[in-house]
Design a protein around this nucleic acid. Structure first.
Lengths: 232, 232
DNA sequence: CGCCCGAATTTTGCATGCAACTGTCGAACT
DNA sequence: AGTTCGACAGTTGCATGCAAAATTCGGGCG
């Protein structure tokens, strides 16, 4: 055995928490998770510690880990942080300047989204998957271009929130995605033109609007902390 | 045994890394650390994983952990993040409004720093310690008042940087500290007056200036990655 | 009827042992 | 001589076992 194992447990546990498979406040018992995963307590323990560091669990010495509850407010808080930090990334990318190759990849991603949206029809699953890929290329290229080692991990933490993760839009409304792609194009042009402040504020606004959209889309049936109990 | 133990190891290991007791790139061996700490490999393993999550170590499966090197650039990056996020905290605190009690504690901390600085003399160790306490009260009150669960942990991560941590100013120049206290007073007044945007920008500038000061104070003899080797 | 105290059970914390993987060194082969 | 293969040492990965702490539950007392 012993491939990248128990790493896998961390990912599985994290995804289960993010999928809302545990109630907020629920006590996660090591043996229970261990036999659920078919492993011993040792790797489970590591996985629990990792999720605690991610802010998903709360730890008390000699008492173990409980699931931290999330509220709607926390989603707004996360998008506040994300808007600010991705804005910083855009500004830094503009100030430092991106390589022609990076700018090209960004432009290509934008163009491919345009192609996806050329028809009026709603997007099928494959198209949604493609959109997510292109969207990720755009954001990641800018984050990488900021050359700040703290940005990427912070953004990941802030985006790992139960019932919002994975980052899937509910609607995939073509009109909305067109608007987002316009944002992307504007941000790209600002970065290419080395207009850092404009890039920062456009990115901030872009993320902020996306956050509002997501909050709106799940505000009807929002109720975390009463998710199904995967154990017992 | 079994108090909050092995938690202690995480803290000790972290502080050793932050104190620069390992070379950048150095491979940290579990048994070596274990006998150094007088413990077994199990808690050491948890401590290593924790420091990796903090961004201080790099992990490769089946190969263990190596110390991530830090450069001067990373300190600037950290202060960029900190300025932005503490600015957000100040704005949110102003927008939400702080309790009279919290505002009072902030004002008291500012006044006590004034008292510390009432003479022209340089600060002795006790006075420096007192200044750090009052400074922490100020910043923490605002961070707590922002009511955003992501702010505090992110700020902590971003401030845990080898050779800058613990947050001790090199100079403690009274003129400088007076300037900082003026900043604090201005920020407090903005928050009390619910002027969120002003509070944000004042805080951002305050942190930015502090970062410049720190970078300047250690730019002469900067050279991380060639720190003394605590092992072997 | 409610509260408090104590033994049994459960759960966490850690040490140890063994299996698997990595890196190294040396010898044989091309 | 250079390269490759293989054995050995060293290190990490995980399961298990035992001790300590916490939780639970039952009985006695107020």
């Amino acid at each position: 055995m012993t491939q990248p194992i128990a790493q896998a447990l961390s990912a599985r546990l994290r995804d289960m928490i993010l999928a809302g498979e545990f109630r907020g406040g629920q006590h996660l018992r090591e043996v229970q998770l261990a036999q659920m995963f078919g492993a011993s307590r040792t790797p489970v323990r590591l996985a629990l510690a990792a999720s605690e560091k991610d802010g998903l669990l709360e730890y008390s010495p000699n008492r173990g880990y409980v699931v931290r509850p999330f509220e709607t407010k926390d989603i707004a808080s996360a998008f506040e942080m994300r808007a600010l930090i991705e804005g910083l990334a855009a500004r830094k990318a503009a100030e430092r300047g991106l390589s022609a190759e990076a700018l090209g990849r960004i432009a290509a991603a934008i163009d491919q989204v345009d192609a996806l949206l050329s028809t009026e029809a709603a997007l099928d699953d494959a198209a949604r998957e493609a959109w997510r890929t292109h969207n990720a290329v755009f954001h990641r290229a800018i984050i990488a271009g900021a050359d700040n080692r703290f940005i990427a991990p912070t953004l990941e933490t802030v985006q790992r929130i139960p019932s919002v993760y994975p980052p899937i839009l509910a609607s995939y409304d073509p009109a909305l995605l067109r608007k987002y792609n316009d944002h992307h194009r504007g941000i790209r042009d600002c970065i290419a033109g080395r207009q850092g402040v404009r890039a920062e504020y456009l990115m901030r606004e872009h993320v902020f609007l996306a956050g509002e959209e997501i909050c709106a889309s799940l505000s009807p049936a929002r109720a975390h902390g009463i998710a199904p109990d995967a154990l017992s």
